[in-house]
Every structure is written in structure tokens, then in C-alpha cells.
């Protein structure tokens, strides 16, 4: 019977496509950081957070804005307010490893800073979101992490 063979072949093709999609580098989105950040902050409350300029970004994250296609970073000026939101757009085919490593270090540093001393801040820091998608790196410590993430996913 031919039809079973055809069905089998279709399955094999789907498997190969599936593997292809999983292993392929995702295509970068053509949105700018401004558009993405705008979409995210229209959905979540970032009152009390202030936008950081290039110098401050360099100081806080040791990431220099020149290396990337755009960075948006807001954080609170209050010591005890751990909320922050960071969106980085990578250049074409740029590796995200360096930035991710630096962000992870920041999270760890912040966690050690508040660990054993401020339970609410620690709980928030534990729930951080760090993800990479379509040429963007997204990191946030907010009360409404999920909303921020879905806004981020939607705009891409």
C-alpha cells in the first residue's frame, strides 16, 4: 500500500523540519529597542524607576552601549528597591554570551547583597526573568514579570 509509505515520508520530513527549527538560530526581529521597550512599559508599571544613560549602564552592568544595537535600562535609585528592566538589541549575528554572563553576574551579586537580610527583595530577585529571543536580550526584576514577558514576546 502506497499511502502508508507516503504518510511515513511526511512524518520524516516533519521530523527533519522540527529538528531544523529547534537547532536553527532564530531570525532577528527588525524592531528597535525603543519600540520593544515602549511596548513593555506600556503594559507594566515602572513608576519610580528612572532611565539610565550610557555612563550609568556602563557603571551598573559594565556593558558599553556602543557594542550593541541599542540598550534600554531602567532601575530604581532607591537602595532597597530592586526593580529593574533591561532590554538589549544585539547586532547581526552577535553572540549574546558576554552580555548574558554580565547580567547573570549582576543577578548573583544582587542576590548575595540582599540574601540573609531582606526577604521580600530576595524573593523578587529570585523570580528574575532573563531570556533571549529574536536578537534581543530581556532581563527584568519586576512585580509583574509575566506581563512584561508576554508584552515582550508579543511585540517581537
Amino acid at each position: 500500500m502506497k499511502k502508508y509509505r507516503i504518510a511515513e515520508i511526511i512524518c520524516i520530513v516533519i521530523l527533519l523540519v522540527f529538528i531544523g527549527i529547534l537547532s536553527a538560530d532564530e531570525t532577528a526581529s527588525d524592531k528597535t529597542v525603543k519600540e520593544v521597550a515602549g511596548a513593555v512599559i506600556s503594559d507594566v508599571d515602572i513608576k519610580g524607576l528612572s532611565k539610565q544613560n550610557e555612563m550609568q549602564i556602563k557603571k551598573e552592568l559594565s556593558i558599553s552601549a556602543k557594542d550593541y544595537d541599542g540598550i534600554y535600562f531602567v532601575k530604581s535609585d532607591e537602595v532597597m528597591d530592586v526593580r529593574e528592566l533591561l532590554i538589549i538589541k544585539l547586532k547581526d549575528n552577535q553572540s549574546s554570551d558576554d552580555a548574558i554572563k554580565k547580567i547573570e553576574k549582576r543577578i548573583k551579586d544582587k542576590q548575595t547583597l540582599f540574601e540573609g537580610y531582606a526577604p521580600e527583595q530576595s524573593a523578587m530577585l529570585k523570580n528574575y526573568v532573563l531570556k533571549q529571543e529574536a536578537g534581543f536580550i530581556f532581563y527584568c526584576v519586576l512585580e509583574e514579570n509575566e506581563t512584561a514577558v508576554s508584552a515582550f514576546n508579543k511585540i517581537l
Partner: peptide
């Protein structure tokens, strides 16, 4: 002495990942 987890928000992306 810690904040306990609350019911997680259900979104498509939180299920997918």
C-alpha cells in the same frame, strides 16, 4: 521567613517555556 510562592500567572509564554 520568606515570601511563599503564589499561584503562577497563566500565559502562553509561561506554558511554552
Amino acid at each position: 521567613n520568606r515570601v511563599l510562592a503564589s499561584f503562577p500567572k497563566l500565559t502562553l509564554s509561561s506554558i511554552a517555556d
